[in-house]
């Protein structure tokens, strides 16, 4: 059985369930937006908010990601479907990538909402023209989109890996943040720095952000490959 077919089947199943249940749309996206609003109330200063906006976007992404990952495995464990997935002999690499891709789609939607909220609520702006004029790599928008994509793949790979591990334990709701948050700290640092460059925060320029996206890419590849290899043995145990 083709690995890509298994991944597609798992991803489309997860996304269909989310479309049907509307948990992401009705609960997780509003939860993320509320976090951003609360940050605005707590800091209560335009200049401070503009300075810390990239960090706040990624902190809100992380908190919401934990809920998304828990949701991704709650649908599997609700009626024992995860056991059947493990028993079915399906290629675990296909299962891993299917769940990762479904998370990528949901996280990207979430991040677009959070960036839009930061722009509207915190009065931040993206540096440079869209693409033309100052060159492709000089555009803050291109850097922003690249950052979102590379960071999201890294986060989703880590979330899928540790979500699968925690799914077999009692107390998984509290275990998952403990496992995931320390591991994704390089993503938070890299994505925040890259987004600061895209936003031009505190005089940062776009060119400075590309080295951070390099770090995000290395992280995504490392956890993509590592997760593919480790997922099977982890969920079998």
């Amino acid at each position: 059985m083709k690995r890509s077919r298994i991944a597609w089947a798992i991803a489309s199943k997860d996304l269909r369930i989310e479309l049907r249940s509307r948990i992401v749309a009705n609960q997780i996206l509003p939860f993320a937006a509320v976090i951003m609003v609360l940050f605005a109330f707590a800091l209560d200063s335009d200049s401070v908010l503009q300075r810390v906006a990239p960090g706040l976007v990624w902190m809100a992404t992380l908190f919401s990601m934990i809920v998304l990952v828990q949701r991704s495995y709650a649908i599997e464990t609700e009626d024992g479907a995860f056991d059947l997935l493990r028993l079915s002999g399906l290629d675990p690499i296909g299962v891993f990538w299917g769940k990762t891709l479904a998370l990528v789609v949901q996280l990207l939607l979430l991040e677009i909402l959070l960036v839009a909220t930061a722009i509207l609520l915190y009065n931040t702006t993206v540096s440079g023209a869209w693409i033309g004029g100052i060159g492709f790599l000089g555009s803050g928008w291109v850097l922003l989109v690249t950052t979102l994509i590379t960071a999201t793949f890294g986060l989703a790979a880590v979330g899928t890996l540790y979500g699968g591990l925690a799914a077999g334990f009692s107390g998984r709701e509290t275990l998952l943040p403990l496992l995931v948050l320390p591991v994704v700290s390089p993503v938070v640092i890299g994505a925040t720095r890259a987004m600061e460059s895209a936003f031009g925060t505190a005089g940062a320029v776009v060119s400075e952000g590309w080295s951070w996206t390099g770090l995000l890419l290395v992280f995504a590849v490392a956890f993509g490959v590592g997760g593919s290899l480790a997922y099977g043995p982890l969920i079998e145990e």
């Binding site: 049907r20 024992g80 479907a81 059947l84």
Partner: peptide, 16 residues
């Protein structure tokens, strides 16, 4: 891949 095992749970997705 040739075996299906069912215990007390049915392994169904409630929203599907």
């Amino acid at each position: 891949t040739h075996v299906g095992m069912l215990g007390h749970a049915n392994g169904l997705y409630g929203d599907l």
